[in-house]
Amino acid sequence: MNIFIILGMGAAVGFLSGMFGVGGGFLITPLLIFYNIPPVVAVATGANQVVASSISGALSHFRRGTLDVKLGTVLLVGGLAGATVGIWIFSLLRSLGQLDLVISLLYVVLLGTVGTLMLLESIRALRRAAANQPVSLRRPGQHNWVHRLPLKMRFKKSKIYLSVIPVVGLGFGIGILTSIMGVGGGFIMVPAMIYLLRIPTNVVVGTSLFQIIFVTAYTTVVQATTNYSVDIVLAFILMVAGVIGAQYGVRVGQKLRGEQLRALLALLVLAVGARLAVDLVVTPEDIYSIVSEGVYR
């Protein structure tokens, strides 16, 4: 393992995450897998790295008052339950020898979907800009089926009166993703909170980061105790490089045009997904493999 490659990886992903305001977990884990880190380790270490990259963002949102702790806590209840179930699935898949395959498949689906949606969206935005059309904002005020569910709760900071069922459910789903894929899940949680739950945009990012910190921290501890798969040295190198890279990413991101950048990120996401897909299809060097019970010891 070359420390400079890991540093470069962390810095590059940190730079991108700062530039686009994404967590970066969904890029770190596949990159580690490409670098022949066992997927078990890549996922657990990725979750640990996300803790660090989410903290500074959450702190600044908290200072600015754009973090709804009550809403975040309800999300977290679902998140912790989801992560618990996720780790159980993770260990089961591992004992069946299907873990690496499932991680790769999930990433192919996830990166393919997110990349395609982002690419389409940025192409539309570029066309609009070229035609000089004003951006048409969808009204997020309208109610949908989600708002007819029972068990409603008032979230003062978000100025919203909402059933806890979809909030816990969303947290649960994200918790499963966190534990199986080593991602924070912000790239799914943020749009779902805005478009599905109609939560005001200004509190969405801070609140999702709040949930991410605790769920990734919990996942790290549970992975460490059940699968012994957290590599603290690897995680630390990634964290340090990542938080520094993110600072520069933020600065560059403020100067460049958003649509083109988003199109570039979309292409990168699609490329990573395509590489994982190719690895699933290409005939492996050896179709046999050995695993000992005290693996990676």
Partner: peptide, 15 residues
């Protein structure tokens, strides 16, 4: 595991 999390919290906070 707890130490790994603490290290991450510290790194993020310091940054």
């Amino acid at each position: 595991g707890a130490f790994s999390v603490m290290l991450a919290v510290l790194t993020g906070w310091l940054a």
